[in-house]
Simulated assay, not measured.
Amino acid sequence: MSVSRSAAALAMALVAAGAASTLHAADAPKTEKCYGVAKAGKNDCKAGAGTSCASTSKVNYQGDAWKLVKAGTCTSIKTPKGFGSLSPKG
């Protein structure tokens, strides 16, 4: 195989990989941050003051800890502390 054929094959592979990742992103379901619904240690990134990222919430349903959920479902998620919120709860 010549160098130009190898380069062409590589270029086509890169284009195909890029197209596949674009399609994958477009097919991904829309999500939203939902506060107050995560169990202790099960939150997604950032859980308010004193925490740094995922899995750092200290209590169940911490009001300033969020979990990614399917878009449009957050405020219908009921917990023992009330419904989920699209903004941090105090």
Rank of each mutant, 00 (worst) to 15 (best):
K39D: 09
S52D: 11
A17P: 06
M12H: 12
T22F: 04
A47E: 00
A26T: 08
V37P: 01
A17R: 08
A26C: 05
C45Y: 05
K39L: 15
V15P: 00
A40Y: 01
G41L: 11
G18F: 01
K30W: 04
K39V: 13
A16G: 11
V15W: 01
A49E: 14
G48Q: 03
A47F: 01
D44M: 01
V37L: 04
A13Y: 05
C34W: 04
T31A: 08
Y35G: 09
A38K: 03
L23E: 13
G48S: 05
A25N: 12
A16H: 00
S21F: 05
S21H: 07
L14C: 13
V37G: 01
L23F: 10
L23C: 13
K33V: 06
G50I: 07
K33S: 06
P29E: 10
A16L: 03
D27I: 07
G50Y: 03
C34A: 09
H24W: 14
N43I: 03
K42V: 01
T31P: 00
A13I: 09
L14W: 11
A49S: 12
M12W: 12
N43W: 00
L14K: 14
K42I: 02
D44N: 10
A16V: 04
V15G: 01
A13E: 09
M12L: 15
L14T: 14
G36Y: 02
